[in-house]
Every structure is written in C-alpha cells, then in structure tokens.
C-alpha cells in the first residue's frame, strides 16, 4: 500500500496560485483580448473609481449644475455703513 508524503504533496497549495500568477492569468487575459477583438475592460479599482466619480458628478448635475436656481428674496437691508 502506497502512503502519501503530505509534506511534499501540500506544496501544491503554493504551486497552484504561483502557476496562476505567472502563467494562467496573463494567458487568460491574452485569450480574452483576442477573442473579444477589442481592449479589455478596465480593472476593478478603475471601474469602482469611475462609478464613484459618476455618482459624485451625478449629484453635482442634479443639485448644482443648473443655472436656474431661484435666488433668495432680499432679506437684508441695504448696506448703511462703509468699510473701516
């Protein structure tokens, strides 16, 4: 009966991610680029930054970009004093 040397076999736990990092992930991106025929979408941090920027600009467009906000009724009396 063959016994497994787990101290060596578990080295695969490190080897698997290493393979992905060095070979499989770049190769997948290359394949995706070729299959799609157009540039890849931006990475997730960039997409997230774009989404947050869109939200901020959307809020700006909604609340402040219009020039038609009515000005408040003049509440203060006309100035009566000069600057010192």
């Amino acid at each position: 009966m063959n016994t497994v040397d787990w101290s060596r076999a578990l080295a695969g736990l490190l080897l698997g991610p290493l393979l992905v990092l060095v070979f499989l992930h770049p190769f997948s991106l290359l394949v995706a680029r070729i299959v799609r025929g157009r540039p890849l979408p931006p990475p997730r941090p960039s997409r997230r930054a774009c989404a947050e920027l869109d939200a901020l600009l959307g809020e700006f467009e909604r609340t402040g970009a219009t020039a038609g906000t009515p000005s408040p009724a003049p509440a203060s009396p006309a100035p009566s004093a000069e600057a010192p």
Binding site: N2, T3, V4, D5, W6, R8, A9, L10, A11, G12, L13, L15, G16, P17, L19, V20, L24
Partner: peptide, 16 residues
C-alpha cells in the same frame, strides 16, 4: 508515485 499524483491534484484544484 502517489505523493506526486496527490500534489498535482492539489495544484490543479488550487490553480483552478
């Protein structure tokens, strides 16, 4: 050997 086969299976599973 069995150890190498097990290591390959673990490597493939973690890589996937």
């Amino acid at each position: 050997g069995t150890t190498e086969r097990t290591a390959m299976i673990i490597t493939a599973a973690t890589a996937l």
